[in-house]
Amino acid sequence: MGRYIVRRLLAAIPVLIGLSILLFAYIRILPGDPCVAILGQHRTPEACAALRENLGLDLPLWQQYISYLLKTISGDLGASVVNSQPFVAEFLTRFPGTIELTIGALIFSIGVGIPLGRLAARKVGGWLDGLITGVSLFGVSIPVFVLGLALVVIFGVILGWLPTQGRIDARARFDATSGILLVDTLFAGRLDLFVDVVRHLILPSIALGSIPLAIITRITRASVIEVANEDYVRTARSKGLKEKTVDNRHVMRNAWLPVTTVVGLQVGGLLGGAVLTETVFVWNGVGRWVVDAIENHDYPIVQSTILVFAVIFLIVNLIVDVGYALLNPKIRYQ
């Protein structure tokens, strides 16, 4: 197992190097004079000089890359050209919002997708299967922001059931240490605020979770159908096991495997989708920050966000692969 993890970690190194080259190139292929392209309307002669110095634009290209790489590894991910705030500091205040939203969407998509997929698989070809397949088709065909806007109109504007903007009632005052409000409100002993946070989370989670929901439903259905036809499931029934045991132990323990991989791959889509979802729901997270950065031509922020999101994606999938190996004894011993 340990060797497997080490091997996977080593395999990530070329990808990380490729990523750094790509993002290094990104800032340098911006059209025109880098000073104009990067600083835009914020440029002053002093700022330009500082930028040239900071990026090492007068050095040979390979030296510039090495210095970018070293800085990045040491945790210096640049700074905003608008307000000179270091990326990392600002990112850390924004990221909890994105985590909360992503986890909400994951809980929604897994919590609904897996039961739906199992249900459809049990009734293959029936009307319920058709309905579930139809819903999942709709889920992959509706853009996050269109669904988000629709949810805002229906549940926010027309029905008025749920809040449609922000993460928490703007008037709430309490001690937010971690930035993950679900946790902070509980630690502050404010159950009322916790409920408020959950209410704020519902619509964005549904909007962001719709695509993963559809994909997880499909893969669960397909996987359960495939496993249910395996010989060992017939063996399990021939031994006189209860149908529930056959289902939970023999079918699901195997059907999980492809589902875990797919869930891991959804994390990239969720982080990307968060950019759109946070815009629709005025959600204070990294996504909205990036959109602001695009408007302000604050490219170092875009650059480093891409880097961090890609690294998160790689880490999550490493964890998923290790989890897969733990679930699947065949891989574990190879």
Binding site: G269, F309, F313
Partner: peptide, 8 residues
Amino acid sequence: FLSIPSIL
């Protein structure tokens, strides 16, 4: 390329 969320 696949490690970067496609919209980003």
